[in-house]
Nucleic acid binder design. Structure first.
Length: 570
RNA sequence: CGGGGAUUGGCGCAAUUGGCUAGCGCGCACGGUUUGGGACCGUGAGGCUGCAGGUUCGAAUCCUGUAUCCCCGACCA
């Protein structure tokens, strides 16, 4: 490709809105362009990188006997209604109606569609196990875009689905896909940590997330300082330590308290005691408008994923002031006991504190010396709060959990039979009995990976692409273009390399300074830079420079092809 | 979904107590001088100031509505 023909030029200025380096460089170097919030066009350079990642992903999966297919981007509402996700995933589903009145959605994922496919074709245990994959666009509405390609509403995702006759088979298939993922990470030169995660609306029992540790990430990961326990914040378990169980249990009292004391901050201001001393009540309502009061320690935060699991409800949302009014209370005045027709649930942490403050705030009174087990008790006590920095690891009970930020790049779910059950996907076993298919679901963010790779591989001047995903093999620059001989020589080199299946970006611009060309080469980030100039030819050849090194070598034209092919192992 | 900010040539920005022909940098086109780390001179093209109303002698500037984009919050009662 001749640079002057390339669609998408480099820019000197970066948009203020772009915070991440990957985002800035991808914009400046002309790899991507934003069409609307969370919707990006891939320009030729970006599309080349995307295509290469896409190919690597498919290739590595194919090694694990994964079969590729392609399912539609648009799917009928009826499939989503079968599993209940038409309502459950309402916030991300873009729903619309066709001209003939058919209800449709833009698929945010493809479990429903593939399960529908598989139930039509799989009849016997002889058809299993089976791993199917496609790399297809996804659309998730109401996602707030972030970091360029890191978080977009529409994105290219690889999603594989495994089908087995048993949980054991599922584990094997799961391992196969995870193996492929690890090889993909290696190819892309990114380091992903495998962590335990919450399954969320995906359902199923067990899920592993693959996260690139980066302080620009929006995922919170907790990692044990001692053992190898790692989990994301939705899932991370921790051991609740005794806070003040050596304190004497005092007599329960109702005392005067100024009306302004409402929030945890107010309590701290008023009583001048640490946060853990206060009882905190967080009110939610579930899909059927049932009120749930989560009672926790003042220093803790409710974890909605854990709360949903513990209460067994399908969805929760924070109660509104109006909901509180209907309960006969108001913000700051919610009681830890005594509200009628509500579900109370407490966190295990309540047992680690004696003599709480709070629990039944009224206009100018509240209670003190409140003790769980003596003054109030719940039928439901569970892990419903977030683990945080320096909490004790639940696994080894020795190490402290450390918080890290990360970008989720892949996620693998053991779905079990939840989809096959709701969608009636069964097979006949050896005994002629109908059995549910055991499923797994596996997603890798292909377009996100473009950002992740750029985020990991860059310097002050631009991107440094790994050789596996570089848009071109070499960036050929010609200087001293007014000298016809030199220009012709460069042109010949360009043609020769191309004929050897070497992908060349040829910067043959005549009216552009050397510095400008070098700066563009650095920004674009192709691993090998070649320069043909008066100087290089005088020195006996072509300048050869790797993007990630300052060293410049002169290489004879006759040796160039081999050098490049060795580098790329092609 | 809630709150805040923004929207001015392709890109990045200026100009608002309402007032001259809406400026600047980058980029682009043409001519010339340059050519090893984002060169310079000259000339030029490119705008109904997001859109729709309103106030006014006069609106980029004030008011109303609306669209789009960005940031924060997604809870602690």
């Amino acid at each position: 490709m001749r640079y002057s023909n390339l669609f998408g030029k480099t820019k000197k200025e970066t948009a203020k809105q772009a915070k991440l380096k990957s985002h800035q460089f991808l914009l400046r170097a002309g790899f991507i362009n934003q069409t609307a919030a969370g919707l990006y066009s891939f320009l030729p350079l970006g599309f080349k990188v995307l295509s290469k990642i896409d190919a690597i992903v498919k290739q590595e999966l194919a090694k694990e006997n994964v079969q590729h297919l392609l399912m539609p981007y648009v799917s009928p509402a009826s499939l989503w209604q079968e599993t209940g996700r038409y309502d459950k995933m309402d916030s991300v589903l873009a729903k619309f109606t066709s001209k003939r009145g058919q209800d449709l959605v833009l698929s945010p994922t493809h479990e429903e569609i593939i399960t529908d496919l598989v139930r039509k074709y799989v009849q016997s245990y002889k058809d299993l196990p089976l791993i199917l994959n496609h790399n297809q666009l996804k659309f998730r509405d109401e996602i707030r875009a972030f970091g360029g390609l890191v978080r977009t509403r529409e994105f290219l995702m690889q999603d594989a689905y495994t089908f087995d006759t048993s949980a054991k088979g599922l584990s094997k298939s799961f391992d196969a896909v995870v193996r492929a993922y690890k090889n993909i990470f290696k190819q892309l030169e990114i380091e992903a940590v495998e962590i335990e995660a919450d399954s969320g609306t995906m359902g199923g029992s067990d899920s592993h997330e693959f996260v690139i540790i980066a302080n620009v990430g929006e995922d919170l990961v907790l990692q044990c300082s001692d053992c190898n326990y790692k989990a994301n914040v939705e899932k991370a378990e921790f051991e609740r330590e005794k806070i003040n169980l050596d304190e004497k249990i005092e007599v329960f009292k109702i005392i005067d308290q100024p009306e302004w004391v409402c929030t945890m901050q107010d309590n701290v201001k008023h009583y001048r005691k640490p946060l853990w001393r206060y009882l905190k009540n967080v009110v939610y309502k579930d899909q059927d408008e049932n009120i749930i009061i989560a009672s926790i320690r003042g220093d803790q935060e409710v974890n909605e994923a854990k709360l949903m699991q513990a209460t067994g409800v399908q969805s929760i949302e924070p109660a509104t002031d109006n909901d509180l009014k209907n309960m006969g209370t108001r913000p700051g005045w919610v009681h830890s006991w005594g509200h009628k027709n509500v579900i109370y649930i407490g966190d295990y942490g309540l047992k680690m504190v004696r003599n709480f403050i709070g629990g039944q705030k009224e206009k100018d009174t509240d209670s003190v010396n409140v003790n769980y087990g003596r003054d109030f008790e719940y039928k439901l006590l569970a892990d419903i709060v977030n683990a945080k920095e320096n909490d004790l690891c639940a696994k080894c009970k020795k190490g402290k959990l450390k918080e890290k930020r990360g970008i989720e790049i892949a996620h693998a779910f053991k779905l079990g039979t939840c989809y096959s059950n709701s969608m009636n996907a069964k097979y006949l076993d050896k005994n002629g009995k109908l059995q549910l298919i055991h499923m797994g679901s596996y997603g890798f963010g292909v377009s996100r990976a473009v950002a992740v790779v750029a985020e990991v591989h860059n310097d002050d001047n631009g991107i440094v692409w790994p050789k596996t995903v570089t848009p071109y093999h070499v960036h050929l620059i010609v200087l001293d273009t007014s000298d016809g001989k030199i220009f012709k020589q460069a042109q010949k080199l360009y043609e020769d390399l191309k004929s050897q299946n070497i992908d060349v970006l040829f910067d043959e611009r005549k009216d552009v300074s050397a510095g400008s060309k070098f700066a563009d080469a650095d920004l674009i980030g192709i691993p090998i830079r070649l320069v043909v100039s008066k100087k290089s030819l005088k020195n006996g050849g072509i300048e050869f420079k790797l993007r990630n090194s300052g060293k410049i070598e002169i290489i004879k034209i006759s040796e160039l092809e081999k050098r490049i092919k060795d580098f790329y192992k092609i």
